[in-house]
Write a protein that binds this DNA or RNA. Sequence first.
DNA 1: ATCATCCCGTTGCGGATGAAACGAACCGCC
DNA 2: GGCGGTTCGTTTCATCCGCAACGGGATGAT
Lengths: 160, 160
Amino acid sequence: MQLETFFPYRLAVAAEAFSRNLVAVYGQNYGLTREEWRLLFLIEGAGRISSLELARRTTLGKVQVTRAAQRLEEKQMITRRVPKADRRLREYSITEEGRTLFAQAFDEVNARASEILGAMAPEDRAALDRGIEALMRAVRATTPEGVLAPDPEGGPEVGA
Amino acid sequence: MQLETFFPYRLAVAAEAFSRNLVAVYGQNYGLTREEWRLLFLIEGAGRISSLELARRTTLGKVQVTRAAQRLEEKQMITRRVPKADRRLREYSITEEGRTLFAQAFDEVNARASEILGAMAPEDRAALDRGIEALMRAVRATTPEGVLAPDPEGGPEVGA
DNA sequence: ATCATCCCGTTGCGGATGAAACGAACCGCC
DNA sequence: GGCGGTTCGTTTCATCCGCAACGGGATGAT
């Protein structure tokens, strides 16, 4: 078997190459990591969102959410508050600076993505979209459990 | 814009989820990292291969090749020798243990991959394959340069 | 032959990452 | 209302990772 023709490898390389292009945009131009980018994306879209919702809507574990949110807060892009209903949780909101910066970053990222996708034939784009959607369904259908989830936290320990 | 419907995000999540499934196989069952897996794949396919060729045929930089190769050597899966033609280079060969272990690991990984892909409709599989291929071409066509390459090493420094 | 320059692999180091420990807060039951 | 079990977010620690410096080795000009 040839590595270059092994499908999982090709998929990983192509996806990673595409991703790198976008990371380069919001990374170099706006100093955001991939996780910060995703959180900012969600928070800006929701206006106000709880930590639970954040973890549920991303593939990120709670550790990653904590750290990315801390950095975003230091950069004045979001604010964090403790809801009085449940003081274990956190509620995040985007600031005006954050909203402005995200809008700019999004435009640039989207432009770069469109540039790449625009270089594809429309039928190829449609095929990619369809294939990715189907792949995601297949993964969800056949993944045993927990391989995707970072933080199952199955309990402290079974007592002897 | 909704994160979940943003195409770059969907692509990244799907590709990563698929990849995780395979990493779980050769990682947990055979103690290999992704980079070790790829190197072993190439070395086994070539029988004997130089460090230059390795870096060229992967997306790995020289640092990653060095370290992954060191670990593979410690695990007795490959051997390293210095060619007398150019003593800066390294030539890698796979050992018998390495070849055996890789064959087993490959079977398992391939089985897992086939299980997932087999859960897709044949037309969806074809669409995915076509889309990925086209995406890779589009990325190559529009990526300025060096965003993909880890080690351009543009020279020591510009003298004042 | 000598020396400057370039090429290649390795290593040191600072920052990032993930798993597991930790502590605060809630919930149900008595 | 107190207490075990549970759910969160944070911290800790060991590891990983990439960048930049390093050193051995080749190459070409003088």
